[in-house]
Nucleic acid binder design. Structure first.
Lengths: 250, 250
DNA sequence: TTATTTTGTTAGGCTGGGCTAACATTCTAA
DNA sequence: TTAGAATGTTAGCCCAGCCTAACAAAATAA
């Protein structure tokens, strides 16, 4: 299914073409060159190479588009990029800019199993009662303080409070909503997927089950479709499908 | 001070030479070739390149040794490698083998600020009362369970217990030892550095202060010197120096 | 429609980093 | 002490991926 192994450079080209295309500005040699910080002639060469691998449709002076195979590969690269960037930003508290740059460099080298674990870990940090944003705030503080963990005693009392709240609130304390009711940027933990619904199979295949973290990315004007991110994958769900997924707001 | 920017390939050569030298088997072209999975003639080329950069002492048919500059750079590469590997193993719970391989590929691409944060983060996970090995065990469980966090409720009770223990024990509950009393492999959190001691300045410069994690790596036959790892750096301390550092066992 | 500008391609060069084949040196064992 | 064997080097080739310069096509303005 894979078959094609690309150099770091070609992966970059693919990724950039994907993004340019997504920005609907149609990928032009000139723009690719600018983003790659490379001369146009180098782009031509790369395009020929990508075409030879069946990843782009390319004829001299013609339109540049990704083949299905190329798009799949591009999405894979983007997933690696975003997973790294999100980890750097959300867990390591690195600035967007630095995180993005680092992800750019490292995305070509991360092996699949490590990638999957990293994604799981970032999810775990967000979902675990002992983790969460307060924990990350604790890490930031730890970084600032030049490594004194003394006042992490405070941090333990925060956990105590959280746990008490959790116990008091029980199940009803949490906000459970249908996925289509989240605003873009909001995240939730899947608590139920209406079985028999057509989505259930599709997303189950991706390993999305109860407990998984979902983030709403974007909602189209009429509330349909809903773009969500799950396990690093971007998914487009129809409103009806999103309704069948119940999540607990984070 | 840096000045030299090496390609990923040359960094690998440097690292391998460093390791071969450390294994005291003196770096030989043949062995370098084997580890790099490359032909001997390629090694000659690389050595010339490294020599040109003032990183190795090399003359045809002669001994291969690292210059001080080369050794410093090699240690830097090794630090990146180990930081990544340790993070993969200790935090992401990836197998040694896979972790090492991944580190090998990613070590060339990780920018300094990200590296430092990653090291800090791994340290934070070990030291934070909300983190620690039990938390990692929770993550492992989470991975196995295919992402159900439901029983993380259990996990909260673990925190509760830990916090109670911590409160009960107070300061006296923890084992505080001089660093020279740890066994290889043991880790501790610095609680005090006898001021005025000659080490204090040296290690303060590296950012080692109260709260920092130290791991004893190796102790020479007569207990002197003691090799420790701190913030990813390998340090060799004289026994007298190690005595002046008091740590709380983890 | 034509002239000019913009955009894209080709040709050919350079570097890094690998390879093989042939040659040189050093080591080792007779 | 000397002949192999083992090890290391050189020469010359190849490929990826960048570059510049010159040229070709397309888009735009007159």
């Amino acid at each position: 299914m894979e078959g094609v192994i690309l150099s770091a450079s070609l992966e970059d080209y693919l990724e950039i073409i994907f993004h340019l295309q997504a920005e609907s500005k149609v990928a032009r040699v000139k723009d690719i060159a600018k983003r790659m910080r490379v001369k146009a002639s180098s782009v031509t060469g790369a395009l020929r190479s990508l075409a030879k691998n069946g990843l782009v449709n390319y004829t001299p002076y013609g339109l540049i588009t990704l083949t299905p195979k190329g798009e799949a590969l591009a999405k894979d690269v983007v997933r690696r990029h975003e997973a790294l960037r999100d980890f750097f930003v959300n867990v390591l508290s690195i600035s967007e800019k630095q995180a993005d740059e680092a992800a750019c460099r490292m995305e070509h080298a991360i092996p699949k199993p490590v990638l999957e674990r990293l994604i799981q870990f970032a999810e775990f940090v967000e979902l675990c009662p002992r983790g969460g944003s307060k924990w990350i705030a604790g890490f930031q503080h730890y970084c600032m303080q030049g490594n004194t963990l003394d006042d992490c005693e405070k941090c333990t009392s925060v956990v105590l409070e959280d746990i008490k709240k959790r116990k008091r609130g029980g199940k009803k304390g949490m906000q459970v909503l249908s996925l289509n009711n989240l605003r873009p940027g909001q995240k939730g933990k899947v608590v139920k997927i209406k079985s028999g619904s057509p989505v259930s199979r599709r997303i189950a295949e991706m390993g999305v089950t109860t407990g998984t973290l979902v983030e709403v990315e974007k909602i189209a004007p009429m509330g349909d479709p809903v773009d969500v991110k799950v396990k690093g994958y971007h998914l487009s769900l129809r409103k009806e499908e999103a309704k069948d997924i119940h999540v607990e707001l984070i």
